[in-house]
Simulated assay, not measured.
Amino acid sequence: MNRLKKILKGKTTALFLVLLVFAYLNNSSHFAKARSGEPLLLAHRGLAQTFVMEGIANDTCTAERIYEPEHPYLENTIPAMEAAFEAGADIVELDIRPTKDGQFAVFHDWTLDCRTNAKGEPKLYTMAELKQFDIGYGYTADRGKTFPFRGKGIGGMPSLDEVLARFPAQSLLIHIKSNDPKEGEQLAQALAKLPEDRRNRLTVYGGDEPIASVKTHMPDIRVMSKATMKSCLLPYIAVGWTGYIPSACERTQLHIPEKIGPWLWGWPDRFLNRMDGADTRVIVVGGDGSEFSSGFDRAEDLARLPTHFTGGIWTNRIDRIAPVYHK
């Protein structure tokens, strides 16, 4: 009996070692198919004013804590997006809010109070009324002593239709800033009017409910939400060591915090190769995912990425990051 136990124990140990070696060989980037090319650069809100990140909450007015301006652009405006693409962005991210007259305004905040000279939610106004407000009104780098953009942002808030018309061939990441499924349905109806090749260059992300609504009405469009991320990554973490790609990982987008990436099977090259095979885009964001809008905003930040990283990179300062790759 003892001999049988020893034999079984030995076989179990041998099997474990075989699986361990298999998992290593099947997930080590050293044995992955070589990747080439440059990273995909995603410009968050175009080329925008950056701000102090410490202590930010959902209701923090970030316009009141910007750094001393180094450029004249304001987030979510057409000039900011033009500057981002000209600097070398592959994708520009933008935020949308519904308006009183059934359009989408390109604007980040829940209310107009922080950045503009108006009050209340954008949905209380028509698009024409929103264009009368000064979107640079509230920006200050010295706690209200000076307002460098006041008076310069009148008419600067674009509609989503204007952005789509201005950038007909560029890739855009559209952010629904709520969890209202009706907004997802409204956006799907608007995007359905576009030709297929244009829709293929768009990705929509946001709350679980509006994104589920978008996907229901437009199953061909790339989407992302916390729910889609979990449905992909949780089973991948469980069985991805075998090389299996869950169906939920197909044709979607993943925003991976830099500190989480190394815990994913095959990170970085095998993981990226697997997601490429599933037509899924991988974007690395800064930190552990707990900070708002954290990205790679200085050239030295890129040292935190794996060597020769070729996935997507989230940045708030495309003007600093793109020159590193586009010399």
Results as ranks from 00 to 15, higher is better:
Ser29Ala: 05
Trp265Lys: 12
Ser293Trp: 08
Gly286Asn: 12
Thr50Val: 01
Gln189Tyr: 03
Val214Thr: 11
Thr12Pro: 00
Lys327Arg: 06
Ser294Glu: 10
His326Trp: 02
Lys33Cys: 00
Asp301Cys: 05
Asp208Gln: 10
Ile78Pro: 00
Thr13Ser: 06
Ala84Lys: 11
Ala105Trp: 06
Tyr67Gln: 10
Leu173Tyr: 09
Ala89Tyr: 03
Gln186Asp: 09
Leu202Ser: 04
Gly136Phe: 07
Asp134Lys: 15
Ala192Cys: 00
Trp241Asn: 06
Phe133Gly: 08
Arg115Lys: 15
Pro306Thr: 05
Gly88Trp: 12
Ala80Gln: 01
Leu25Phe: 10
Asn117Ser: 05
Gly37Ser: 04
Asp161Tyr: 01
Asp109Val: 02
Gly120Met: 07
Lys177Glu: 03
Leu191Asp: 07
Gln170Met: 02
Ala303Thr: 10
Ala32Val: 04
Glu121Thr: 03
Phe107Leu: 13
Gly312Pro: 02
Asn27Asp: 03
Gly311Leu: 05
Gly46Cys: 09
Pro323Phe: 02
Lys193Gly: 00
Ser290Gln: 15
Asn273Gln: 14
Glu209Ile: 00
Pro181Phe: 02
Gly206Met: 04
Asp134Gln: 15
Ser247Pro: 01
Pro210Glu: 13
Ile256Gln: 11
Gln132Cys: 07
Gly286Thr: 11
Ala165Leu: 03
Ala192Arg: 11
Arg115Cys: 08
Ser29Leu: 00
Gly184Tyr: 03
Asp319Cys: 01
Lys119Glu: 14
Ile237Ser: 15
Gly102His: 12
His326Asp: 04
Glu209His: 10
Ala23Arg: 08
Tyr125Asn: 05
Asn2Trp: 06
His217Thr: 09
Cys114Pro: 06
Glu258Lys: 14
Leu74Ser: 01
Gly184Val: 05
Asp220Phe: 02
His175Glu: 15
Ile135Val: 14
Ala190Ser: 09
Gln49Ile: 01
Pro219Glu: 07
Gly10Trp: 05
Pro262Met: 13
Lys100Cys: 00
Gly240Phe: 05
Leu233Lys: 10
Gly286Cys: 12
Leu202Lys: 05
Leu194Arg: 07
Ser294Val: 03
Val106Asn: 06
Thr242Ser: 13
Asp101Ser: 07
Val106Trp: 01
Glu86Gln: 14
Phe85Arg: 11
Cys249Ser: 10
Phe133Trp: 15
Pro235Arg: 12
Cys232Glu: 14
Tyr67Ile: 01
